[in-house]
């Protein structure tokens, strides 16, 4: 695999899926767990936590699949002290263990029979979920040779998107026909999502404008080049503006489960498109950048 190309081809669709599923799953988990603080065994709480755990595990499978030597993944726990990838592996492992435990308890417990430490488990899960959502962003943000990634906005963007897609998933699932839970139960989350969408729009604006100077080719690729479709239609259209409008309708009384479902699917599409764009726009800065003054003397 050539790494000398300025455009990265090292990470492909499996990593995109992992980033998307891990974000979606951790967001969903967080929403469920926060819901559980007020209503321990509500449908949304159970759904968020169980689906969230499942999705993170599913994503992890893609991550493992993507490794050159998956059987050696245990070694990734060795460098907790320096490597964000190793820290992430720890976070992911702990999240998976506690998430699985949490899910099993919720699946097996009768009504009102959750153990006493359940809130602690939920709370710990939220912290780990934030870690899962954020560590990949931190890892990319530290890659100094790739200006499009090398930005502190990226972890914030990943967390916001994780949260938003998590809400989107739950809104979509709750909107499904035959579901017992009233759609209104999601109203506060829809409200929260409007805030995160607005925040995400702001972050994307800053992300692109800051990078416009540092990584012009990457930004051009996103806004006008080969990634323009996924960006304008996927991230901005389907993922942010359409859900924003639909959620506003939902809150102001003009909404319906159908619109809720559409906005949920839109949010998921946008989340996937965002990861796709970030991964493939991660070009490497040319090695000679900044060296011109060393190379030639001014002309006669």
């Amino acid at each position: 695999m050539a790494s000398n190309a300025l455009w990265q081809r090292s990470w492909g669709w499996k990593v995109v899926l992992y980033l998307f599923l891990a974000g979606l799953g951790s967001g969903s988990f967080a929403v469920g767990a926060i819901e559980a603080f007020s209503s321990a065994q509500s449908f949304v709480a159970n759904l968020g936590i169980i689906a969230g755990t499942f999705l993170v595990l599913l994503g992890t499978l893609f991550l493992l699949w993507d490794l050159g030597r998956p059987t050696r993944s245990i070694f990734a726990l060795r460098r907790l002290r320096v490597s964000w990838s190793s820290r992430g592996t720890w976070t992911l492992t702990l999240f998976s263990l506690f998430g699985a435990l949490n899910s099993i308890l919720r699946l097996t417990a009768g009504n009102g029979s959750l153990p006493e430490f359940q809130p602690v488990l939920d709370g710990l899960g939220v912290l780990l979920a934030i870690g899962v959502a954020a560590y990949t962003g931190v890892m990319l943000a530290l890659m100094s040779g790739r200006p499009m990634w090398n930005s502190s906005i990226l972890p914030a963007l990943f967390i916001t998107s994780a949260f938003s897609t998590g809400i989107g998933l739950l809104v979509a699932l709750v909107s499904l026909p035959g579901n017992q839970t009233p759609f209104e139960a999601m109203e506060k989350w829809i409200g929260a999502d409007i805030v995160s969408i607005l925040l995400e729009l702001l972050l994307i604006y800053f992300y692109l404008s800051v990078n416009f100077a540092r990584a012009p080719e990457s930004v051009r690729m996103v806004t006008r080049g080969s990634l323009a479709g996924p960006f304008w239609l996927g991230v901005l259209g389907a993922g942010l503006l359409i859900p924003l409008g639909l959620e506003y309708l939902n809150l102001t009384g003009g909404g319906s489960p159908v619109l809720g479902f559409v906005s949920g699917v839109g949010l998921l599409t946008g989340g996937l498109a965002l990861r796709y764009i970030v991964v493939f726009a991660g070009g490497r800065a040319p090695v000679l950048a900044g060296n011109i003054r060393f190379l030639v003397r001014p002309g006669v």
Binding site: P70, F75, S85
Partner: peptide
Amino acid sequence: MGCRACVLA
């Protein structure tokens, strides 16, 4: 383990 984070870093 072939995660390629170093390739990108």
